[in-house]
Amino acid sequence: MNVSEHTEPVADHHGVPGPTHESATPEARLSSLETMMLIRAYEEQLVELQRGGAPGTCTSVGQEACAVGVIGALDERDRILTNHRSAGHLIARGADPGRMMAEVLGRTDGYCGGRSGSLHIASRELGVVLTSTIVGGELSMAPGMALAQKMGRGEPGGIVAVFFGDGAACEGIFHESLNLAVQWQLPLLFVCENNQWQAFVHRLETMPDRAIADWAHSHGLPTRSVDGNAVEEVYAAAARAVAEIRVTGSPQFLELVTYRQRGHFEPDDQSYVDPDELVAWRRRDPIQGYREHLLESGLIDPEGLAAMERRVRERIEAAAAFAQASAWPAPDRLTDHVYA
């Protein structure tokens, strides 16, 4: 895989220390692994629920390192915009899987009272502020949110991060959004999770291989392209970008090269996917790879790992039980919240 760094070394000009993965504490690394496992288990549970008749969903299986690495580099004062593949971003931000699952099932305890479903969950309290499932919709709103931040309407020192995919990079709004962020010098981190698939079309049918980083670079954005399946690499690149944005107040771009291991929308038999490609990327699974890495480095032993798996399983079982026990919304509340 062609992973490169296309960046102007902004940090060097401003003396911002660039965090590296060596700076992550053992606790932080173990926590990253557990959060990735929680995201995976949550989405696998949604797939199970869907088989039982629950609404379908767009999973981010295979992309967990992107969510955990980038969200880990943000802090409470930052605000996040995301898209239809957002479970990882929410869980990494600390969302309660039970309330998320209740939302997917359309229940009152869901984050949005059952009006969002899996596709547009937002949580003001978590700073996951806007979610659009219209590909590119999140990119259209990001500069405005960052402008509000710049004009003092957010937490002091905060930045805005917007997550989108390679599909959104083919929308015209991608270029409009990047251009405005650069022209207005907005504190905005663009995070493209390049997962190779745009619904049912492989991205190489729609764009040149290195297009995303080249496009971002050509808009004048400091751009990094890293292995999106390596959580520590993602964290290091994101933390560096975030630190630079806080100092300069200007936007940066992060391309995370990853892979959508499941179909576009559950259920999906993936009959259109090249089996060799799928196998090759599964061998590079972000969670499996990181487990092995932490075992080899002695940060965790097989017993510790088993205990972690058990904790994750118990949380997801409790979440599913909570969601299924949650009440359905009253039909006469259908039109609540249309207008303020």
Partner: peptide, 20 residues
Amino acid sequence: TPLAEAIMAGTAVGAAAGGL
């Protein structure tokens, strides 16, 4: 703004949600 109505309107939406 640039003469680009999609981002003009989107930016207004984001700014409104952000407190402007």
